[in-house]
Simulated assay, not measured.
Amino acid sequence: MIISMRKNAARAEIDSVIQRIEDFGYKIHTIEGEERVVIGAIGVGDTSACLEALEAMNCVEKAVRISAPYKFVSREFKPGRTTITVGGNVHVGNSEFVVMAGPCSVESEKQILESAELAAKGGAKILRGGAFKPRTSPYDFQGMEEEGLKLLAKAREHTGLAIVTEVMSDNDVSLVASYADVMQVGARNMQNFALLKALGKCGKPVLLKRGLSSTIKELLMSAEYIVAHGNNDVMLCERGIRTFETATRNTCDIVACAVLRELTHLPVILDPSHATGKRSLVPALSRAGVAIGADGLIVEIHPNPQKAISDGAQSLEPAQWLDMMKSLQPYIELWKAERMSTVAV
């Protein structure tokens, strides 16, 4: 249910409505604007009695059911866009197009520091890098774990870039959160519900990647787990899905970026590196991401991709990365102009 309070409702009136909703056994989620408070109520069973009781309260302007199965992340609950602040000075989902860049894995201090400098030189605001790596083969490099997190933190001190890195287990949430600015959920863990619940309490923004064979609805339901457990700061990432096509690593569902912007208020990020698996295709898909209205990109780059321990084939070389970011600027300027006009309306 969505309960819209009357304009300038008093705190005592808001509290009385919240108490009435809780009396019916529902969980509460509020959005407090300058003039009006909107209350979301989630629970199991028929909402008719609760809705009728709320509509009878003078301080309530309107109380309606949310038809989408994902409640808190739906546009029904919040028609406007969510802006997520990362590292204190980066704002994702507003009028700032945010690029995240870095290597697939943290391999050494020299490699991650060079990657961070390269990312910053190209205009990235957030450094990506894996300290914990979920690999298909148990014999592949699994990451440097906490030592990798320490190196990411050192790269942040060196460049000022915020950090996004993957967390694989609910047991590692506290550890990763002590280093990272953004907690990444990889495609294989999109429906790891114990992890999603723990991320709801971690106090850090989350980048949730779409599963290899998951629908848009399933992605939104996974985001709902995180928000319903207390964390509103979720970014959704389209990184390609598994199809019968073999020409690319995955099949980029580029229209998913537009669909998600219709269905949810959460920011949408495109990952052109995993979607294609080929560095030659990354610039073109990045332009498509800007054009279709994504809020940002997450791109793999490496100082020397030929020597990368993982995902070297899809990582941009330094010159490719800098050229791509330069070529993206006219598209990003058009993107910003469109966003500003939308905000003005």
Rank of each mutant, 00 (worst) to 15 (best):
F193Q: 08
V176A: 06
L175F: 00
E147H: 09
I163Y: 01
M183D: 09
T215Y: 01
D172R: 09
Q184A: 11
L175T: 12
C202S: 14
S213W: 02
D170W: 07
A162F: 05
Q191I: 01
N189C: 11
V167D: 01
S214E: 08
D170V: 00
M183V: 09
M190Q: 12
K201G: 06
S174Q: 14
Q184Y: 10
A155M: 04
L212M: 15
S169Q: 01
T215A: 01
Q184N: 09
A162D: 02
L207I: 12
L149Y: 04
V164M: 10
I216T: 15
K150A: 15
L161S: 05
T215C: 01
L212K: 09
A180Y: 05
V167M: 04
S213G: 14
V185L: 06
E146L: 04
P205G: 12
A153M: 01
D170Y: 13
Q191F: 04
P205H: 12
L208T: 09
N192S: 12
L152C: 04
L212N: 11
K154T: 13
S178L: 07
V182F: 10
E147M: 07
A194D: 15
E157D: 14
L212C: 03
N171E: 15
T159G: 02
G186V: 09
Y179H: 14
G186H: 06
K204W: 13
A194M: 12
L199V: 11
L152E: 03
L175P: 00
G203K: 14
L208C: 10
S213Y: 11
V206G: 09
G160C: 04
H158A: 13
E157L: 05
A198R: 13
G200N: 12
L151V: 01
S214K: 00
K201Q: 15
A198Y: 07
H158K: 15
S169N: 09
D172P: 00
S178C: 05
H158V: 00
G211R: 05
L152W: 02
V176H: 07
V185A: 03
T165K: 07
E166P: 08
V185P: 02
V185G: 03
N189M: 06
L151H: 01
M183S: 09
N171M: 07
C202D: 06
S178E: 12
I216N: 10
E157H: 00
Y179S: 11
A187F: 04
G148Q: 03
T215R: 01
D172K: 06
A198W: 11
K209Q: 08
G200W: 11
R188W: 13
V176C: 04
L161C: 05
K197S: 11
G160A: 09
L149T: 04
N192Q: 09
L207H: 11
R188P: 10
E166W: 03
A180W: 01
L161F: 04
V185W: 03
L175Q: 02
E157F: 00
Y179G: 07
